[in-house]
């Protein structure tokens, strides 16, 4: 009976990967990494890892006959002579593979916020060239949303309609001038964005957090303390439009605002 430490290590790593992904789904923390629509993919991955683990376990111990039988050994991929030639390179490989497991199990997770928003693509208006033909190209779904929004006395943006509503406001701001609006989001301001006006925004996660981008509406307020605010706020105000850098940009005239806790689901998913 021959014990293969390297095969045992591989088995352990496979089991840990499976356990890691299962734990993320179990605790719901998976939502801070990927769009829940695609959760099934990673669930399947965790099951495949578990299956691979069961396959790998059978390689940990070899009987003497198997170890001598060169053909059998080759199939099992034990190929001792190949693996032992570069022990250091091999070891670095395992360290790399264990790295996400270590950071995944031990480091706390953080949600992206205003600080990360600065480094990303930010959307607060649609470009001029697009507003021209937007009415023709937008499908009937967008038209329905426009109608629905125009009919409402107060627009209130929540988790489910955030993307559709901000999209509509950005593409045709002139339709919504004077409309009352309630929305929540994190506040941030940057000199490069909207001439340094504060912006109320949320992250949109299409697939995974790595492709998250920011969308939101520019705020204007006489209250100076708003600009010092960091974190999540809830805003009540009226939509207006301004010319900014040669573009028609929607604004919210803030009437009332208060800071709130970060919601349990900070991201919105298309």
């Amino acid at each position: 009976m021959i014990f293969h430490p390297q095969q045992a290590l591989k088995a352990l790593i496979l089991a840990l990967f499976s356990g890691f992904i299962i734990r993320l789904h179990h605790t719901g923390e998976i939502n801070s990494f990927i769009n829940p629509q695609y959760a099934a993919f990673s669930q399947v991955a965790s099951i495949i890892f578990l299956v691979l683990f069961f396959i790998q376990v059978t390689r940990i111990f070899l009987t003497e006959e198997q170890a001598v039988d060169h053909q059998y050994c080759n199939i099992l991929g034990c190929s001792h002579d190949i693996e032992d030639t570069k022990p250091l390179k091999n070891r670095i490989g395992y360290v790399m593979i264990c790295l996400p497991l270590v950071t995944g199990f031990f480091l706390p997770y953080s949600e992206l916020g205003a600080a990360e928003a600065m480094n990303r693509a930010i959307c607060y208006s649609s470009s001029e060239t697009n507003t021209g033909h937007s009415h023709e190209t937008l499908g009937t779904k967008s038209d329905d949303i426009m109608k629905e929004m125009i009919d409402q006395p107060i627009l209130s943006l929540d988790h489910s309609n955030f993307i559709d509503y901000t999209n509509a406001i950005q593409t045709s701001p002139e339709l919504f001038v004077g409309k009352r609006i309630n929305m929540e989001g994190f506040i941030f301001s940057d000199k490069a964005v909207a001439n340094g006006h504060p912006m109320l925004a949320r992250f949109i996660v299409t697939h995974c957090v790595a492709d998250a981008h920011v969308t939101g509406v520019v705020l204007s307020s006489s209250d100076k303390s708003l600009e010092r605010e960091k974190g999540w706020i809830s805003v009540r105000g009226i939509i207006d439009v301004h010319q900014l850098e040669g573009q028609l940009v929607p604004f919210i005239h803030v009437q009332q605002w208060n800071s709130i806790d970060e919601p349990t689901e900070p991201y919105v998913y298309p």
């Binding site: 990494f33 990673s42 950071t103 995944g104 997770y109 949600e111 992206l112 995974c208 790595a210």
Partner: peptide, 17 residues
């Protein structure tokens, strides 16, 4: 922490494929 979150999310997204 943000770095770690993005790193893990790229991995979690890519692993099934």
């Amino acid at each position: 922490l943000a770095f770690n979150t993005i790193f893990l999310s790229i991995l979690i997204e890519a692993l099934p494929f």
